[in-house]
Simulated assay, not measured.
Amino acid sequence: MSEDDFIITPKEDKSVTITIRIDKALQEKFDHLSKLSNRSRNELINLALEYAMNNAKFIKQTDKKR
């Protein structure tokens, strides 16, 4: 290889495509936020999912007295 070589490596795709169903009202909220933030709805959903996973708390037992 020389300094002038144009090096191309395989692209690493770390994303997957999934299909989910959400309430129409939630979709409209994401669309509105998308317009306000100039971010795609997909990007906002990814941010929201990552936030949820980072802040999720799992409770083994439910409190039936509530």
Results as ranks from 00 to 15, higher is better:
27 Q>G: 00
33 L>D: 08
42 N>Q: 15
44 L>Q: 08
38 N>V: 03
13 D>P: 00
44 L>S: 04
16 V>L: 13
5 D>V: 03
47 L>C: 07
63 D>K: 07
20 I>H: 06
50 E>R: 14
18 I>L: 11
48 A>F: 06
58 F>Y: 14
44 L>R: 05
11 K>R: 10
61 Q>F: 08
27 Q>N: 13
10 P>N: 12
32 H>Q: 15
9 T>F: 07
37 S>T: 11
31 D>R: 12
47 L>I: 14
53 M>R: 11
34 S>A: 14
53 M>G: 01
45 I>Y: 03
19 T>W: 07
3 E>V: 10
66 R>Y: 11
39 R>Y: 10
24 K>V: 01
24 K>Q: 12
16 V>H: 05
25 A>M: 05
37 S>M: 12
32 H>I: 09
52 A>F: 10
42 N>T: 15
24 K>S: 06
32 H>S: 12
53 M>L: 15
61 Q>Y: 10
20 I>T: 07
40 S>K: 10
64 K>C: 06
45 I>T: 10
25 A>I: 04
51 Y>G: 02
16 V>K: 11
22 I>A: 05
16 V>E: 13
6 F>P: 00
36 L>E: 15
12 E>I: 11
35 K>I: 06
39 R>D: 04
25 A>S: 06
18 I>E: 08
31 D>P: 00
62 T>H: 09
5 D>E: 15
56 A>Y: 09
57 K>F: 04
39 R>C: 14
23 D>Q: 13
34 S>W: 03
29 K>D: 12
58 F>G: 02
26 L>V: 12
18 I>K: 10
11 K>N: 06
64 K>T: 10
21 R>L: 11
5 D>T: 09
66 R>H: 07
1 M>Y: 03
55 N>Y: 03
1 M>A: 14
38 N>T: 04
9 T>G: 02
45 I>R: 07
39 R>T: 02
7 I>F: 09
45 I>W: 01
61 Q>M: 03
46 N>C: 12
9 T>S: 14
32 H>V: 07
34 S>H: 06
48 A>P: 01
39 R>M: 13
49 L>D: 00
51 Y>Q: 10
31 D>H: 06
8 I>W: 02
32 H>L: 13
26 L>H: 01
14 K>D: 13
60 K>S: 02
51 Y>E: 03
16 V>G: 02
